[in-house]
Design a protein around this nucleic acid. Sequence first.
DNA 1: CAATATACATAATTTTCCTATGTATATAAG
DNA 2: CTTATATACATAGGAAAATTATGTATATTG
Lengths: 112, 112
Amino acid sequence: MSANGMLKGSLQTIILKLLHENDKMYGYEITQKVKEITNGEIKLTEGSLYPSLHKMEAEGILSTSTELVDNRTRKYYSLTKEGHLEVETKLEEARSFIGNLQVLLNLNPKLS
Amino acid sequence: MSANGMLKGSLQTIILKLLHENDKMYGYEITQKVKEITNGEIKLTEGSLYPSLHKMEAEGILSTSTELVDNRTRKYYSLTKEGHLEVETKLEEARSFIGNLQVLLNLNPKLS
DNA sequence: CAATATACATAATTTTCCTATGTATATAAG
DNA sequence: CTTATATACATAGGAAAATTATGTATATTG
């Protein structure tokens, strides 16, 4: 929630990057991690997170395994081989887009 | 077009920033300016640009004036008083969001 | 004369996210 | 003991934003 109408288009990239770093994570853990890293400025809603995870699983870039902890179900997500390729693509797109946006908006313009 | 699925959410900000710098611009001119600044990496489509301009005009943050140049109509857009306020808000949002995204994706992480 | 550039517009669709809701267990507060 | 909060998942319905695909029209270049 809270002031991120700009999330569109980068949610998948954020999720994939976290899974690239952490090997396996479950949904709730992802929301907490994003909140922590951004000092509470970006809060993923379940209504956007879970459908996005399901979609990527259906596309074959994520795989799942379920565990039971304290009587509560945890569904862990991991990158597949295709997922690892997809992260690189998405990150490069993000790098490029952010660079262009910074130039357009005069925010920390690209040196060089 | 071309590799900017991440445009969602920042199109208005880009337009407003250009109008903030240029006092008045017409649609086609905006597409050319964005293409020029980003070395052709971001190409605004008419299908997204014009509806966005119309919407902002309806909201009262843009005003228009039409001119005829070489027998072709040009519809110039300018920021209204509200538009000038809106630019600041949008820019601050963009600054914040990009900062968070950079930390999440490990791209030029914020020093400090 | 044809292709490209300039200049606007919009309908229909798709993508992506959010809101609201629902289920269920564990723990902390009072 | 009861209530609120945190943990943990899921999905239906709706809204917002951009794209695709058209359509009109004039000027310029080859």
